[in-house]
């Protein structure tokens, strides 16, 4: 169970600033990619990989490691930044994102990238896969945990709701799901494109244990994880309120930054904002949507 001291908190904030710089840099170098969702999901990944999950570069093929499925695969620059920082592969690979012969594909490829547990990119499939991993852990009486991160636009896919039934039917309390709820999808605000509301009620009515946290506040996220671990008999959905483009002022809450690389001036401005010790950004999770 993660307990965060003030020192931990400061370390995580500094780590996140560095990783956000990596995200912006790799997408700038690649000339394409998805900065908005990568920046919104990053703090969830930081908490999981640095404070929660039992997995590291030296033992990432251990059968009993915890596993994470990034169902919203387009946010992979965030996952790649974390995995490189943790030593799963050399940091130099980040500059080869989306380039020919690279281990870092535009969307995650488990066959190419050490530490990526599941290929994704075609939305809506990750929760089913995570269910399978959770069933496997149970069959083996293993205490390993399965984490899955879904996008808020992604849950418009019907398969997500098939899987939502399965997680509950098989009482997969070794599974923790996060919803990166930044409120935006490619064509605009999700409430305008295809509203998922009432959102938490939907998951609850399917039988999920649900929580709501600030997806950029590590104490809030850690509290959510602790409460998920403590809940037995049903899976937990943690709705993390986030800001699309978090940390880069001109990207925040802008659907236009879903899948676009910054130009040179934008890139330099983003890096300078992310260099400040403040933690970057102007919006909080609760301000969005």
């Amino acid at each position: 169970m993660p307990v965060l001291t003030d020192t931990n908190l400061e370390e995580l904030k500094q780590k996140a600033l560095k990783l956000r710089r990596d995200i912006v840099s790799m997408i700038y170098e690649a000339g394409s990619g998805h900065p908005g969702g990568s920046l919104s999901v990053l703090d969830i990944l930081v908490l999981l990989y640095y404070k929660v999950m039992k997995v590291d570069a030296d033992s990432y093929l251990d059968h009993d490691r915890d596993r994470l499925v990034l169902s919203k695969g387009h946010a992979c620059p965030a996952l790649y930044a974390v995995l490189a920082d943790k030593g799963f592969f050399p940091a130099g690979e980040l500059g080869r994102l989306r380039k020919i012969n690279s281990m870092l594909q535009g969307h995650p490829d488990m066959c190419k990238t050490p530490g990526v547990e599941m290929s994704s990119g075609s939305l809506g499939q990750g929760l089913s896969v995570a269910n399978g991993m959770a069933l496997a852990a149970r069959l083996e009486n293993s205490l390993r945990r399965i984490f899955v991160i879904l996008g808020d636009g992604e849950i418009q896919e019907g398969q997500v709701w098939e899987a939502a039934m399965t997680s509950v039917h098989y009482r997969l309390d070794n599974l923790v799901a996060f919803l990166d709820f930044n409120g935006l999808q490619i064509d605009g605000w999700i409430r305008d494109v295809m509203s998922p509301e009432p959102l938490l009620e939907k998951w609850r009515s399917f039988g999920w244990h649900t929580l709501e946290v600030d997806g950029h506040d590590y104490r809030s996220l850690a509290e959510g994880v602790n409460r998920a671990f403590a809940h037995k008999g049903a899976p937990t959905m943690i709705l993390a309120r986030t800001v699309k483009g978090k940390g880069v002022s001109f990207m925040e809450n802008k659907a236009g930054w879903h899948g676009k690389a910054p130009g040179k001036d934008e890139y330099e401005q983003a890096l300078s904002e992310l260099a400040s010790a403040k933690g970057g950004g102007v919006s909080h999770g609760k301000d969005s949507y």
Binding site: H63, R67, V69, M110, E117, M118, G124, Q125, G126, L127, S128, V129, A130, N131, G132, M133, A134, L135, A136, A137, E140, G158, Q159, E162, A163, M165, T166
Partner: peptide, 16 residues
């Protein structure tokens, strides 16, 4: 729910 079945099978296979 065939789509979910295929994904669940993939997760089981990914775990050995």
């Amino acid at each position: 729910s065939e789509a979910d079945m295929m994904g669940t099978a993939a997760g089981l296979a990914a775990s050995g």
